[in-house]
């Protein structure tokens, strides 16, 4: 039941990414609502929810946006290992900054892979464009969105969960 809810939520997030997100652009960047939802699912549901949600989101978004689901899946792939690493490594960082770092890095990976795919199919992208219009604008957008979403979560008393995969959980 909980798995079905996670899958449904991420399908809705993918639909919102192709219908709602393009309506609110910042320059030439659009908010990554799909990634934000996946990160929040991880924060609330833990690692198993991300394990289930990542392929569901990649396939849904790939189908809806006519992009390669495989490429999107590879883009979202670093989420879990990175979050787990930040959990276990003794870096003095609050849970919020751990989540923020994870989201920014995964956002960069997804955008970078999509930029490479566009270049391989004939788009004339330069390094400057990729850095400024794709990477930097995306990073700012992702950080702002996560911060906006994090406040109500803390307000209702939801304690972020660690994204470390526990031995024997699967």
């Amino acid at each position: 039941m909980r798995s079905a809810l996670v899958a449904l939520l991420l399908i809705l997030a993918a639909v919102a990414q192709v219908t709602v997100a393009p309506l609110f652009p910042l320059g030439s960047a659009v908010p990554n609502l799909a990634l934000l939802t996946l990160v929040l699912v991880g924060v609330i549901g833990g690692a198993p929810a991300v394990m289930l949600g990542t392929p569901v989101l990649a396939i849904s978004l790939g189908f809806l946006s006519d992009r390669s689901p495989a490429l999107l899946l590879l883009g979202y792939l670093p989420l879990l290992p990175l979050a787990a690493y930040l959990d276990t490594a003794s870096i003095p960082m609050s849970r919020y900054f751990q989540t923020l770092s994870t989201m920014v890095v995964v956002g960069l990976t997804v955008r970078g892979l999509l930029a490479l795919a566009a270049m391989s199919s004939g788009a004339s992208l330069t390094l400057g464009v990729v850095l400024w219009q794709v990477a930097l604008a995306g990073m700012i957008f992702d950080a702002a969105l996560l911060t906006l979403a994090y406040v109500p979560l803390r307000f209702v008393g939801l304690e972020p969960r660690a994204l470390t995969l526990e031995r024997g959980s699967f």
């Binding site: 639909v15 990414q17 192709v18 219908t19 393009p22 652009p25 030439s28 960047a29 659009v30 809806l64 946006s65 006519d66 992009r67 955008r111 999509l114 930029a115 566009a118 788009a123 992208l125 464009v129 219009q133 794709v134 604008a137």
Partner: peptide, 14 residues
């Protein structure tokens, strides 16, 4: 137009 996928470098609608 049902949906649109747009980033800095692509602009596709369904």
């Amino acid at each position: 137009v049902v949906s649109r996928a747009s980033t800095s470098f692509d602009s596709v609608v369904s």
